[in-house]
Design a protein around this nucleic acid. Structure first.
Lengths: 128, 128
DNA sequence: GTCGTTGCAAAGCCTTTGCAGGGAA
DNA sequence: TTCCCTGCAAAGGCTTTGCAACGAC
């Protein structure tokens, strides 16, 4: 199935270029409508699915926000959720060794890590 | 709000006593109905919510199965999902050091790890 | 008898899908 | 012109909620 360039898809892609962080469906829809007023929710869902399938996006499962999407191709990183401001941060690098993470016999091919805590801003302000 | 013991709640709790692994809503409902035939889905949802609130259960977010529940009070462990048989395993222990997992300034209070790969059984049978 | 709990059905989210019209190539 | 893509609305899952009846204490 050949892919056609539409203003809607371009709008959605540009949202990811502007915001370098994991985005929720709704954020994508709202930001996308600033570029294409008529942008429909179903269109966003269809395009995200397509972009994931094409390997341009990665679907993330946030423990409390549900589904988030982020650009693929980034270096391996983990996610951090600030319990105070609810923002999601990305931490480059990794301390997990897949080979050592599981008991003998299990073959680990990938992993997903979510960290929870307090970000520097909130620590400074609220002193959690 | 005082808590009353009902046959429904007892049934749900006993499902967790019998199956020592993360369970999906539907598994809980099906297994629970073997003890209390009339057990209703809404009742299961309400009790799970209550048991989580009381700290008796923990809610887990499985990247592809959605919400799972497991007994609280277990030692720290991570979850492993076999890509071949789709079973979820629990691995005791942890190689992650919260203190080292984040850049300076971030305070990590907790983390959640999901490993993906092939379990020993599937590796033996299919040689993935 | 009180009031927390249950079953049932309706309603609420989030996401997917059918369909006819619209637009890219 | 072809046929992929879009908007809209309906439909599907999963989860929550309102309400009257029920049952633990």
């Amino acid at each position: 199935m050949a892919k056609r360039n539409t203003s809607q898809r371009t709008a959605i892609e540009s949202v990811f270029h502007q915001q370098n962080r994991p985005l929720a469906i709704d954020e994508i829809l709202v930001a996308g409508r600033k570029k294409v007023e008529t942008l429909n929710q179903a269109t966003v869902y269809r395009n995200l699915k397509r972009l994931v399938k094409d390997g341009w996006l990665i679907k993330i499962n946030h423990p409390s926000f549900g589904t988030l999407y982020e650009r693929s191709g980034k270096k391996h990183h983990h996610h951090f959720h600030c319990n105070a401001c609810n923002r999601v941060f990305e931490f480059p690098g990794c301390l997990m060794d897949d080979k050592k993470a599981a008991p003998r016999g299990f073959i680990v091919k990938d992993h997903e890590v979510f960290l929870f805590g307090v970000c520097p801003d909130c620590d400074r302000i609220y002193g959690f």
